[in-house]
Design a protein around this nucleic acid. Structure first.
Length: 850
RNA sequence: GCCGAAGUGGUGAAAUGGUAGACACGCCGCACUCAAAAUGCGGUGGGGGCAACCCCAUGUCGGUUCAAGUCCGACCUUCGGUACCA
């Protein structure tokens, strides 16, 4: 038999909306709990079954916290700028605003149909000018700040010390350039992934996607806005100690930031004493092993140092490198094939004064370290491969010690990349690697030949896109080319019906002269035509939820402090955002922290990733495989409560797991069983519940076990086992003749965060006027959990040989004699000598026999 | 290659170093029914035994321990991330 879920769910969704049941007040006297979902990009495909997985988990937490008396902030919004809507607009001419709004309406409808207890009055939308006003405002905070490396924090650009030689009107250009070079948001000519067909720059992680779809992507230097996230590398790394995140995600972030410690070393150039080549190395102890050096092809010294005799080959190699796609470059890397050419100049070894040949090769990247390396083929895998290919001398300066028996450190003949003992190195001979590094750095620093340095892999954030559908960058340029920040925010995205990028590689905004060019106070200006990447809006939305209607500030100081004083309490979302979104948001948060706008060091205290839900065939859900499950269909067939409960019952939240249509039946049956337990065939409350329990002790025991288990499991998000326990309770309730009002009441409260519609209905049927949502969360009474006896397990040499019922609290001696009294045990022990007896109190005993 | 997560019945999965497989699906049986569905009750890791019971079993191989799915080491497989970062 079914239960009338459709009517029940409609009724309660309407009632919650009408009564504003989940509107969050700003009662600052109550303890707060901020539980946040990663807001979705509202795609045309509608909600995917993966979305409600995390959303249901957070909803359960939110509902439990309300019942525990917390003031709960549980909001939802839309990360609505995005390329799909713009591309659709290019094809159809329909404005992205229109499709975005349709998609949002559809998503909202779908989410409401699942009964999530969001405070919809706080809904945010990144494409709303009232929202992106503050995205732009934060951008300007970055633009108007510089990073003080002494104080290790961002400071207003007005506090930037200007060198005395740059003062005065005559120096305005030089001064402005100097300031521009210090800003946290700055313009640079950067090699980017340019896609001519899309007319835009792609992020590295987007390249593969579009190349896969048949688009051409090339590396091309272009004028780009950059955000100086590298200034925060150290803090982004060390502050990870303050957060409660999955270890895997912490590792990903650490790897992405990529800290390595070492030193820089200055090499002279033969014949031109005015030039020096600076390298970064983590292995200064191998300095005596240098047999060649490599500069990145784009290294500025290449032009200066290359003699005419080598110009042709060098230029040819540089050109080839620029055209090389990421793909073929990676392929070379995988094959360990190295390319490069001699530039015909020589460096001078800082200690031995030896002449060292200089190469350019694309395995050295301009973007990391100093763009130049000292190559030690004996102790570096890449240098080794290069030396073998180009037949360069290999000089051993580290002896493996002790010789590694596995040979794992030994990457091949003559290559040893591990730690050992320095040899053939006069200054440091005989020292272990760690000590050798230290002594070498000390020596280089003393001789002014180099200095200690911490290097990060992290690059600055490429922040501009040549797109229409994004936040305009609120900066203009006057007739002389000086930058002026827009002080009248929001800088509105202009209306347009042409979404094609301009041919110059600028965004579609460049096609709207009336917007681009403007006059103010008699001066002419040209606007920046780049827009911000999709990451922008999602880097601070969690702040806006604290005070979404505020027109004067991204959030009032008071509300920011109350809701975010110690960060978001629980943040749930996909692991695909483990690096970029979380890193960008942390970066912005830290800038705002430095400038005094937010009060917590880290934005997200606890983070959990929900696992991917696979199709029934165990592969990833996709249209082409035809294994996509639509939430609407499931809700229509079984109802929202079943859908929620099923997704939570599938398995551990963080685990990847396949959808099983069959299993939904079981969860549905459970809810129908609950309904029938409370409501009889005439639609009246079942007598079984009201009658005093016949076996009160048994009912109370299972009830309090359930209260404890469900409460504890929600805290650890072990929602699958919480549901199991409630199933056990219901199975027991069917077995006994009567369970009583109290147990019935508490059980329905326990279930309510999971299946809120059904529980509200039953709650009302039980005669309650108020919503169940704010009733106090049941507490368990430990006295009902106490057992009087236990089934003692008797082991002999660790194997179970017998079981017997014994009283709780039995002494070890009594336990042993009772166990020996069991016939099977007595027989087994008869001919043996007992060497040892281990008793685990109230559980088991193990006889160790010879 | 490197980093991370995970391998348990026919299936999804449980299990503070202490009774492996809770709960659920599926399957089998019984009740209700003219019958079926629905529902309720019971059984269900594999092998052996009439039975009480016995043996085997948590990817593989070792180790620690009175006791290992759980801890340690090596390996295999799958998934996710990353990729010449000096």
């Amino acid at each position: 038999m079914s239960y009338p879920f459709a009517a029940i769910e409609k009724k309660w969704q309407e009632r919650w909306e009408k009564n504003q049941t989940f509107k969050t007040g700003d009662d600052f006297s109550k303890p707060k709990y901020y539980v946040l979902d990663m807001f979705p990009y509202p795609s045309g495909a509608g909600l995917h079954v993966g979305h409600p997985e995390g959303y249901t988990a957070t909803d359960i937490i939110a509902r439990k916290r309300r019942m525990q008396g917390f003031n709960v902030l549980h909001p939802m919004g839309w990360d609505a700028f995005g390329l799909p809507a713009e591309r659709y607009a290019m094809q159809t001419g329909i404005h992205p605003k229109v499709t975005t709004q349709q998609n949002i309406d559809n998503f909202r409808r779908q989410l409401k149909a699942l009964g999530f207890s969001y405070d919809w009055s706080r809904e945010v939308n990144t494409t709303d000018p009232g929202y992106y006003k503050y995205t732009q405002w934060i951008f300007l905070q970055l633009f108007n700040s510089w990073y003080d490396t002494a104080q290790k924090k961002a400071r207003p650009i007005s506090e930037l010390p200007i060198p005395s030689e740059l003062t005065g009107d005559a120096q305005k250009k030089a001064r402005e350039d100097f300031i521009a070079g210090k800003r946290l948001a700055y313009i640079a000519n950067m090699p980017v992934n340019w896609c001519a067909e899309l007319g835009t720059v792609l992020a590295n992680e987007e390249v593969e996607e579009w190349v896969g779809k048949g688009y051409t992507v090339e590396r091309k230097p272009m004028r780009q806005w950059m955000l100086r996230i590298t200034a925060y590398a150290e803090r982004l790394l060390t502050d990870l100690q303050h957060v409660d995140w999955p270890t895997g995600t912490l590792e990903l972030q650490k790897n992405w930031i990529g800290q390595s410690t070492g030193c820089t070393i200055k090499f002279g150039v033969a014949g031109t004493p005015q030039h020096q080549i600076l390298v970064f190395t983590t292995r200064p102890d191998t300095l005596y092993g240098v047999t060649f050096m490599v500069l990145a092809p784009e290294h500025p010294l290449v032009d200066i140092l290359t003699p005419a005799s080598h110009k042709a080959t060098v230029d040819e190699y540089r050109k080839a490198t620029a055209l090389k796609t990421e793909m073929s470059r990676q392929l070379d890397a995988a094959k360990k094939e190295k390319t490069g050419v001699l530039i015909g100049a020589y460096a001078i070894h800082p200690l031995t004064q030896e002449k060292i040949p200089l190469y350019i090769a694309d395995y050295v990247l301009m973007g990391y370290g100093t763009g130049a390396i000292m190559a030690v083929p004996a102790h570096d895998e890449r240098d080794f491969a290069f030396a073998e290919q180009f037949d360069i001398a290999i000089r051993q300066v580290v002896a493996p010690a002790p010789p590694s028996p596995s040979g794992r450190e030994d990457g091949g003949e003559g290559l040893f990349a591990g730690d050992g003992t320095a040899i053939n190195s006069p200054i440091i001979d005989g020292l272990k690697t760690a000590a050798a590094k230290e002594k070498m750095i000390a020596h280089l620093e003393k001789e002014n030949l180099g200095e200690r340095r911490v290097q990060y892999k992290l690059r600055d954030w490429l922040f501009s896109r040549q797109r229409y559908w994004g936040e305009p960058v609120p900066v203009s340029f006057d007739a002389e080319g000086f930058m002026v920040a827009e002080d009248n925010l929001p800088l509105m995205l202009p209306e347009s019906d042409n979404f094609q990028p301009s041919l110059s590689g600028e965004s579609a905004l460049a096609n709207i002269p009336s917007w681009v060019n403007f006059e103010r106070d008699g001066k002419k200006y040209r606007r920046e035509t780049n827009t911000m990447p999709q990451w922008a809006g999602s880097s601070w939305y969690y702040l806006r939820f604290a005070d979404p209607q505020n027109k004067d500030r991204f959030a009032s100081a008071e509300k920011e402090k109350y809701w975010l004083g110690d960060g978001v309490d629980l943040y749930v979302g996909g692991a695909e955002h483990a690096v970029l979104h979380l890193l960008y948001a942390r970066f912005w948060h830290k800038v705002l922290y430095d400038l005094g706008y937010v009060t917590s060091v880290e934005p997200f205290k606890k983070l959990v990733h929900q696992g991917i839900i696979l199709g029934e065939d165990g592969s990833k859900m996709s249209k082409s495989r035809g294994n996509v499950i639509n939430p609407d269909t499931v809700v229509a067939e079984y109802g929202a409560d079943t859908f929620r409960l099923y997704e939570m019952f599938m398995g551990p939240l963080e685990q990847m797991k396949p959808w099983q249509s069959k299993s939904i039946e079981g969860v549905y049956r459970f809810l129908a069983r609950v309904y029938r337990l409370f409501v009889n065939s005439e639609g009246k409350l079942n007598d079984k519940l009201l009658a005093a329990p016949k076996d009160e002790k048994a009912v109370l025991k299972i009830l309090h076990q359930t209260i404890k288990k469900v409460g504890d499991d929600i805290e650890t998000l072990s929602l699958n086992t919480a549901i199991s326990q409630m199933m056990i309770f219901v199975n027991e309730a069917y077995r006994v003749e009567s369970i009583g009002r109290d147990a019935a009441t508490k059980f329905i409260q326990l279930l309510s965060p999971f299946a809120p519609h059904l529980c509200e209905e039953i709650w009302q049927a039980m005669g309650n006027q108020e919503s169940i949502a704010y009733t106090p969360w049941p507490k368990y009474d430990a006295q009902y959990l106490v057992e009087s006896s236990f089934e003692a397990v008797i082991q002999i040499n660790g194997k179970i040989r017998a079981r017997t019922e014994l009283a709780i609290g039995i002494s070890d001696a009594d336990f042993e004699s009772a166990a020996r009294g069991v016939e099977a045990v007595a027989q087994a022990l008869a001919a043996k000598s007992v060497k040892k007896v281990i008793v685990v109190k109230n559980k088991m005993i193990n006889f160790v026999v010879a």
